[in-house]
């Protein structure tokens, strides 16, 4: 039977060519065949679901329940952790009349941006009452101040940014000074994260002195008496105007998680 076989060969060749054409078309225009796929799926999916659904419906239900419970456990554990952190924060901040708004750090400024301060983003904003120039603290001490506020988020300029200089008191006598990230020229190099304390008066500074914030008028941008760091070494006297020392801040800005924005409710309530 030569004729049917010939017809078969021709059919095979044509279909093969059509298939190759379809492949090329699908490669050139992905998604062109989506209506076709959708139509096939409409026909075959019921069959597939019947075929794959032969097992006990109870297993599916129990699996669903188990997954929901596991998610609930994760949520509660997170809540517990947050609660513990909040308790610590409340205990640690015994430095004045204040109200704390807990906030979570949700974003860091990328270290690769060409010009960038050290900023982080918090998940509270003007809808929560946050305004610019409010102090931000964590369990350990001063974090920074709010520089930008959006409706649901706010950006915090961290202590350690080159532009940040904080007025401080240090030592048992409460000597005045300022702490900044950029040391005045001529001082020994600082390690990563270390700050420079410049003494304003003649107060002697010693290793181990606690450094706390001095406070600003109206408590903006920094409220008073927030722990900031510890003096780790005193620079040699080389004729600079004020004595200088190295301060190791209490807060490691690289591992910030739960922080709080400080509200000072003076005169109100």
């Amino acid at each position: 039977m030569p004729r049917p076989r010939r017809a078969l060969h021709v059919t095979a060749a044509v279909l093969l060519a059509l298939t190759a054409g379809a492949t090329v078309a699908d490669l050139a225009r992905p998604g062109l065949a989506d209506p076709l796929r959708g139509a096939v799926a409409q026909v075959t999916t019921p069959v597939q679901s019947v075929l794959s659904g032969w097992d006990d419906a109870r297993v599916a239900r129990l699996t669903q329940e188990r997954n929901a419970l596991a998610a609930e456990v994760t949520r509660l554990e997170e809540q517990l952790r947050r609660q513990r952190q909040l308790e610590d924060l409340d205990r640690a901040t015994s430095w004045g009349d204040h109200r704390l708004l807990p906030a979570r750090v949700v974003a860091y400024a990328p270290g690769t941006s060409p010009v960038g301060g050290r900023t982080v983003t918090l998940d509270v904003g003007s809808e929560d009452g946050v305004a610019e120039d409010q102090t931000v603290v964590s369990v350990d001490g001063l974090v920074g101040r709010v520089v930008r506020v959006a409706a649901r988020s706010s950006d915090v300029l961290l202590l350690g940014d080159p532009g940040v200089v904080v007025g401080v008191r240090f030592g048992p006598e409460g000597g005045l000074g300022s702490v900044g990230a950029v040391p005045t020229p001529g001082l020994p190099p600082r390690e990563h994260g270390e700050l420079t304390l410049t003494v304003a008066g003649d107060t002697p500074v010693a290793v181990g002195d606690d450094v706390t914030t001095l406070g600003s008028p109206d408590d903006r941008p920094y409220v008073a008496r927030v722990p900031l760091g510890t003096v780790t070494s005193v620079d040699p006297d080389r004729g600079q105007l004020g004595r200088t020392a190295v301060v190791r801040p209490h807060v490691d800005p690289d591992v910030l998680d739960l922080v709080a924005v400080v509200f000072v409710d003076r005169g109100r309530r």
């Binding site: 093969l16 298939t19 190759a20 054409g21 379809a22 492949t23 078309a25 699908d26 490669l27 992905p30 065949a33 076709l36 796929r37 096939v40 799926a41 075959t44 999916t45 597939q48």
Partner: peptide, 13 residues
């Protein structure tokens, strides 16, 4: 047939 394959026709070939 779902989940199908990309590109269309490659499996056929």
């Amino acid at each position: 047939v779902p989940p199908g394959a990309e590109p269309l026709g490659a499996t056929a070939l």
